[in-house]
Simulated scan of single mutants.
Amino acid sequence: MSKTTVPAGYQSALDLYETQVAIGKLRHIFQDNLAAALELKRVSAPLFVDPKTGLNDDLNGIERPVSFEMKETGKSAQVVHSLAKWKRMALKEYDFYPGNGLYTDMNAIRRDEELSNIHSVYVDQWDWEKVITKDERNLDYLKETVDKIVGALYDTATSICEMYPALTNTLTREVFYITTQELEDKYPGMTAKERENAICKEHKTVFLMQIGDKLESGKPHDGRAPDYDDWSLNGDILIWNEILGTAFEISSMGIRVDEKALDEQLNKANCNERRELTFHKLLLNGELPLTIGGGIGQSRVCMLILHKAHIGEVQTSLWDDETKAICKEAGIRLL
């Protein structure tokens, strides 16, 4: 069943041709702004990985990866869900040093994704990762990095709005920081999504911290794999989307697990079988660099800055018949 909704009175500010041109400009400007802000270098990245390495992102642990057999090798490969783990291996292999990092265009297929205005089975992100020191594994460094990402986003919106007067910059540089437990305490009678909506409507740009571990209610705010983010030093960048009237996640990120955090989180998540995978062995043995990283949704950023109501207006994907019918009737052009 389609989860697509049409905002009352919605009309795209840009026509189809302007939209395509603007997407190209926006992506170029933002990745340059991001690379400059975080001192990142662009690298090439895989579309699929060997499942035996443990490099694929397990997301919430229930999503099924797309797999196929390679004719020449007879071995299976998995299309990535994201590059959360691969990037850390790449930093080691490419000899990156503290203060420097990488970014890449990540393209993934998440076949179990529920289709909606903001969800597609096709995922495109700027995946980034940066080597840090042991002293930088702290909350202040995490917040400093978030401020830089939000600043890059705001500057990009400013540039695009100057090029297209039909658009206005609704973003802000100011970030409101709150933990998932503080949010639950503030809105105890709400669901996790309702809490996100309430805090974003009030503060516009929010970094919601400490996602993955159980809250005092006995449940986590949201699922998070145990083997990349440190659950005490991670979070989501959420921005209030005026068109859709909802909290809009543009990035999941965090300081990554060290040996101690990985050991604890594998136990909590009952995922100790992963200790035998290549990535996890290296990490537990202290053979991978300490890092911070995340993914920033390319189509999500385009939706936000170009004032689009549906992700299909800024990316090409496959949609169910009901979604296509709803969008056609509303005049929403799916690419």
Rank of each mutant, 00 (worst) to 15 (best):
E114H: 10
I243Y: 08
V6K: 02
E72P: 04
L139Y: 05
M190R: 07
K134D: 15
D95N: 09
M209T: 04
H203I: 04
L102D: 08
E113P: 00
N138L: 08
L139V: 01
L334K: 09
N267S: 14
I243Q: 08
S12M: 13
L167C: 00
G235T: 00
G294Y: 01
Y94F: 08
K87R: 11
A35K: 10
K324F: 12
D320R: 12
L153W: 03
I29K: 12
E63P: 05
D127C: 03
E69N: 06
E18M: 14
I305H: 04
V43F: 14
S252W: 05
K143G: 01
A247W: 06
L40A: 04
N169E: 03
K268M: 09
P7W: 01
I326T: 08
Y122F: 13
Y177P: 02
K219R: 10
A198S: 00
I250R: 06
H307C: 02
H28W: 13
A77H: 14
V150S: 04
L91D: 06
E136V: 07
L233G: 09
V21T: 11
V123Q: 12
P98A: 04
E273K: 08
K214S: 15
A247E: 11
P98W: 09
S82K: 01
Y122I: 07
S2T: 07
W86R: 10
M253R: 05
K204V: 01
W86Q: 05
L55Y: 03
D222A: 13
A330F: 07
L102N: 05
R274A: 12
